[in-house]
Amino acid sequence: CHSECLGNCSQPDDPTKCVACRNFYLDGRCVETCPPPYYHFQDWRCVNFSFCQDLHHKCKNSRRQGCHQYVIHNNKCIPECPSGYTMNSSNLLCTPCLGPCPKVCHLLEGEKTIDSVTSAQELRGCTVINGSLIINIRGGNNLAAELEANLGLIEEISGYLKIRRSYALVSLSFFRKLRLIRGETLEIGNYSFYALDNQNLRQLWDWSKHNLTITQGKLFFHYNPKLCLSEIHKMEEVSGTKGRQERNDIALKTNGDQASCENELLKFSYIRTSFDKILLRWEPYWPPDFRDLLGFMLFYKEAPYQNVTEFDGQDACGSNSWTVVDIDPPLRSNDPKSQNHPGWLMRGLKPWTQYAIFVKTLVTFSDERRTYGAKSDIIYVQTDATNPSVPLDPISVSNSSSQIILKWKPPSDPNGNITHYLVFWERQAEDSELFELDYCLKGLKLPSRTWSPPFESEDSQKHNQSEYEDSAGECCSCPKTDSQILKELEESSFRKTFEDYLHNVVFVPRKT
């Protein structure tokens, strides 16, 4: 048989008469490798580009789960590009990614509803959504962080984005990388972005840091009482949809009607710091009717980097990364020049730590249904340095008659930039024990000054392991946590139920 035959053949030295091919099969003959313009397919066939392209389009058009959109890589027609490569849609070739590779997620039936953290986790790592997304989240724990972890990498949506009755959302900033909504599939009414009845939605994105392009379709905003109209108009300008909307697409009466839409800028007039305090004062603000001013709200939190936005980490279910302080308005003076500047002394802060701070007014709604208010920009203030805590785990070892090696770990709280350490030492008198000992005694162990690591005695271990207080009263049991108490109650309830079950099964009433 021919060298490319495997198993047997019907005619000697003829690659077209093989029972099976050793390498690849091409047009009725066995070959060692697939010549151009053919590609290896499933490690035994040679196919042309049209064959591989037909497989790709067949799966793409069917949208069946589990099928493969075949691509070409290293002269092979394979189910998908290997790690580190992405497909070129024009020629199906796998090309190296520039940075992290995109991950295209194809949605069944063309859309997916995100109504819980669990459903959001199914899209973790996706960068391109081939379909439409509907966000409908009523509640949950730590929602802002969970949504950002699972949806934060999405850069492109081919269909539309719909935010509907998501009472738990305060902001859409968890879509931190969303840059493009194509609108290839539109919501009824030709809408590519749809926001309806979101009672706590206050911000779409921080438009000073976020760009969003909507290729096709219109915007729809109705019944978002805490979303200011200025935020919607800003989205029109940034996304390129200005002029597409009709009169009733953006409701003037049901958007922002319960919001404090600040239209003035508060400026800080005085800032002073110490290692654990920050004193702030800002310019006074009074609405047209000074009785509408209820006070100020001061927001602050630790910020290692200057990239904080107002609604980071917030949701309507209680999660809030900001510390909020309510401040009463100052006494009002008739003389504008003698107006008191409101302020606040922030206490209990960490030394040498940068804080993000902003302040906003708290006002009631005027009778004319106009909203007044003022808010400052987010500023960054760093507390002063102070003395560091003591170095940890000092170790001293003498390696000769004239040297001592000293080692330690950095302090747990540096409280500033540590530039150097101060080492103090003092000579001590020799131990009298060394002169009084009889060095001729056998088995004498000389006193040693070398360091030995501390260890816990058996008594201390027994005390720590004991669940009861000892007789001397030195140790006591740790208080039980809520989960331990709940577990004990469940076990007790189970024992009672099981005992009742045994009584009912074992003891049967005697027939009379």
Score class of each variant (00 low, 15 high):
residue 379 I to D: 01
residue 373 G to M: 01
residue 187 E to F: 07
residue 147 L to V: 02
residue 265 L to K: 14
residue 321 S to E: 10
residue 249 D to S: 06
residue 225 P to W: 05
residue 208 S to N: 05
residue 248 N to F: 09
residue 127 T to L: 15
residue 188 I to T: 13
residue 253 K to Y: 15
residue 143 L to V: 08
residue 169 L to N: 02
residue 128 V to I: 11
residue 227 L to W: 01
residue 298 L to K: 02
residue 258 Q to T: 05
residue 330 P to S: 08
residue 141 N to Y: 13
residue 195 A to I: 14
residue 374 A to G: 08
residue 277 K to T: 12
residue 333 S to W: 02
residue 171 S to M: 08
residue 213 T to L: 07
residue 260 S to H: 05
residue 162 K to R: 11
residue 354 Q to V: 06
residue 216 Q to I: 06
residue 379 I to N: 03
residue 307 N to T: 08
residue 372 Y to Q: 03
residue 314 Q to R: 14
residue 183 G to S: 06
residue 149 A to C: 10
residue 286 W to F: 04
residue 296 F to P: 00
residue 141 N to V: 14
residue 224 N to H: 11
residue 319 S to N: 05
residue 184 E to L: 12
residue 268 F to H: 01
residue 113 T to R: 04
residue 338 S to T: 14
residue 325 V to A: 14
residue 249 D to H: 14
residue 378 I to N: 02
residue 131 G to E: 03
residue 351 P to Q: 03
residue 293 L to Y: 01
residue 215 T to Q: 10
residue 273 T to E: 13
residue 162 K to Q: 15
residue 117 V to F: 12
residue 156 E to D: 06
residue 145 A to I: 12
residue 225 P to H: 03
residue 313 G to D: 10
residue 322 W to K: 00
residue 295 G to H: 01
residue 195 A to F: 05
residue 358 F to K: 13
residue 103 K to P: 13
residue 275 F to N: 12
residue 184 E to R: 06
residue 377 D to M: 09
residue 388 P to Y: 05
residue 132 S to P: 01
residue 107 L to F: 13
residue 387 N to Y: 13
residue 226 K to Y: 05
residue 137 I to A: 13
residue 269 S to T: 07
residue 324 V to F: 03
residue 311 F to E: 04
residue 238 V to F: 15
residue 130 N to W: 02
residue 181 I to F: 00
residue 283 E to S: 13
residue 307 N to H: 11
residue 139 G to L: 03
residue 105 C to R: 08
residue 161 L to R: 02
residue 131 G to Y: 02
residue 198 N to E: 02
residue 219 L to M: 04
residue 119 S to L: 06
residue 410 P to E: 08
residue 215 T to H: 09
residue 344 W to Y: 09
residue 210 H to L: 12
residue 203 Q to T: 13
residue 182 R to H: 13
residue 232 I to T: 14
residue 177 K to A: 08
residue 104 V to W: 07
residue 358 F to S: 10
residue 353 T to Q: 08
residue 279 L to T: 04
residue 316 A to E: 15
residue 330 P to N: 07
residue 371 T to R: 05
residue 339 Q to K: 13
residue 127 T to R: 14
residue 162 K to Y: 11
residue 337 K to A: 11
residue 266 L to E: 01
residue 245 Q to A: 11
residue 114 I to L: 04
residue 230 S to T: 04
residue 324 V to T: 05
residue 373 G to Y: 01
residue 333 S to Y: 05
residue 129 I to S: 01
residue 398 S to R: 03
residue 195 A to L: 11
residue 338 S to D: 15
residue 382 Q to V: 15
residue 264 E to R: 07
residue 232 I to G: 05
residue 339 Q to R: 09
residue 204 L to S: 08
residue 171 S to E: 10
residue 139 G to A: 04
residue 250 I to N: 15
residue 360 K to Y: 00
residue 234 K to R: 10
residue 214 I to S: 09
residue 324 V to Y: 07
residue 381 V to H: 09
residue 405 I to R: 10
residue 361 T to I: 01
residue 393 D to C: 15
residue 127 T to H: 03
residue 317 C to E: 15
residue 282 W to T: 04
residue 244 R to P: 11
residue 307 N to S: 12
residue 393 D to L: 08
residue 289 D to M: 03
residue 289 D to G: 03
residue 139 G to K: 07
residue 310 E to H: 13
residue 313 G to I: 07
residue 121 Q to T: 03
residue 282 W to G: 02
residue 194 Y to C: 15
residue 273 T to M: 13
residue 150 N to A: 02
residue 173 S to E: 10
residue 339 Q to N: 14
residue 309 T to R: 07
residue 257 D to V: 14
residue 262 E to S: 03
residue 362 L to Y: 04
residue 350 K to C: 11
residue 241 T to P: 10
residue 113 T to W: 02
residue 333 S to M: 07
residue 345 L to I: 12
residue 300 Y to P: 01
residue 401 S to E: 10
residue 125 G to V: 07
residue 170 V to Y: 04
residue 190 N to A: 14
residue 261 C to F: 02
residue 146 E to W: 08
residue 111 E to A: 00
residue 146 E to M: 12
residue 388 P to T: 10
residue 109 E to Q: 15
residue 159 G to D: 01
residue 303 A to P: 07
residue 183 G to V: 02
residue 351 P to H: 05
residue 171 S to V: 02
residue 255 N to K: 06
residue 157 I to E: 06
residue 273 T to Y: 08
residue 319 S to F: 11
residue 131 G to S: 03
residue 158 S to M: 12
residue 352 W to I: 15
residue 284 P to S: 05
residue 240 G to S: 10
residue 207 W to N: 07
residue 113 T to D: 05
residue 153 L to Y: 05
residue 156 E to I: 10
residue 194 Y to S: 13
residue 298 L to A: 03
residue 213 T to P: 05
residue 262 E to F: 04
residue 145 A to E: 13
residue 149 A to E: 10
residue 140 G to Q: 14
residue 306 Q to K: 08
residue 205 W to C: 06
residue 338 S to F: 10
residue 301 K to P: 02
residue 249 D to P: 13
residue 231 E to D: 15
residue 298 L to P: 05
residue 262 E to W: 00
residue 274 S to N: 06
residue 304 P to A: 14
residue 410 P to L: 10
residue 281 R to P: 01
residue 133 L to E: 02
residue 354 Q to A: 06
residue 224 N to M: 10
residue 302 E to C: 15
residue 288 P to W: 07
residue 228 C to N: 08
residue 258 Q to C: 04
residue 219 L to G: 12
residue 253 K to P: 14
residue 280 L to S: 06
residue 162 K to G: 11
residue 387 N to R: 12
residue 283 E to F: 14
residue 266 L to W: 02
residue 191 Y to I: 15
residue 280 L to H: 03
residue 380 Y to Q: 07
residue 264 E to K: 02
residue 134 I to T: 15
residue 338 S to A: 12
residue 353 T to W: 05
residue 107 L to P: 15
residue 363 V to G: 05
residue 337 K to F: 11
residue 260 S to T: 06
